[in-house]
């Protein structure tokens, strides 16, 4: 079953057509890669999918439901969560609190309950702590639960961002250059983590990446963007051997 179905998505900024006629179909449980040279419009696609920009044309269907033009928070509630190219953590909050913010819409209680510390507050808060700790354990971050997010080393900050996104209980996870700035060892570990997330949470994942080792290592299918157009799409091996892709992206 198709988890994400995007048809003919387009957006222009002034005279620049940043994304033009972009279509993609991602099946449930698939690990899908979106690659392309700098400025090809990859992050713009992410911003369109998460409602940061409203598309000029086209439709976005998530699990068969049309979510085109909805606001970011509504889209998150529908089930798309993302990470950012330049890490965006809640820096002055602890690692665990970051994940607890992700659980915001999963576990609820009223403002009055929190001001008067009613039983519903205690119960929900306990559940939040337990669930956030479980998630942190998955990413091997549970020992740093009380550390300030800004004090984490770079690789762990990336992991924390993924954990926070997963806390919102998404159907589709968007990862924007998860391996950016990582050393080869960290990248290998990240590949394991991403694969593990997909298997454990039965998650559908769409990722943008420049690191070809990572892309060829974990992605099952790829779409290549160039100047806002889809250059080609298909199975990873085929796409990476396509002469046009090599020319546009990897150099001649």
């Amino acid at each position: 079953m198709a988890m994400l179905e995007v048809t003919n998505l387009s957006i222009s900024f002034g005279g620049l057509r940043a994304v033009d006629d972009f279509s993609i179909t991602i099946n449930e449980g698939e690990l899908y890669g979106l690659i392309g040279p700098n400025g090809a419009g990859k992050t713009t696609v992410f911003n369109l999918l998460t409602g940061v920009y409203k598309p000029d044309e086209g439709h976005i269907l998530l699990g068969g439901k049309d979510i085109t033009g909805q606001k970011t928070i509504e889209i998150n509630r529908e089930g798309i969560a993302r990470t950012f190219q330049n890490i965006r953590l809640f820096k002055e909050m602890t690692v665990q609190e970051n994940v607890m913010v992700g659980l915001h819409n999963q576990i609820r209680y009223s403002t009055l309950a929190s001001i008067f510390k009613l039983p519903s507050y205690r119960k929900a808060e306990k559940e939040m702590r337990e669930r956030s700790l479980e998630l942190l354990k998955v990413f091997d971050l549970d020992k740093e639960a009380d550390t300030l997010a800004s004090n984490l080393p770079y690789g762990k900050q990336r992991k924390l961002e993924i954990a926070r996104a997963l806390a919102t209980n998404p159907k589709l996870l968007l990862l924007d250059e998860p391996a950016a700035g990582m050393n080869p060892n960290e990248t290998i570990e990240l590949m394991k983590t991403i694969r593990f997330v997909r298997d454990k949470f039965k998650m559908t994942i769409l990722l943008i990446e420049h690191d070809m080792k990572l892309v060829s290592g974990i992605c099952e299918e790829l779409t290549v963007l160039n100047f806002g157009h889809v250059l080609c799409k298909g199975e990873t091996k085929e796409v990476l051997n396509n002469p046009e892709v090599i020319k546009a992206y990897l150099g001649e």
Partner: peptide, 27 residues
């Protein structure tokens, strides 16, 4: 009590990173 609750964390999340707060579904 407000600060140490779900609402307080949402408020601090907005302070720390508005775009990220929005992306995890905070109004």
């Amino acid at each position: 009590n407000l600060v140490h609750s779900r609402d307080g964390r949402a408020i601090m999340a907005i302070r720390d990173n508005l775009i990220a707060a929005e992306s995890v579904g905070i109004n």
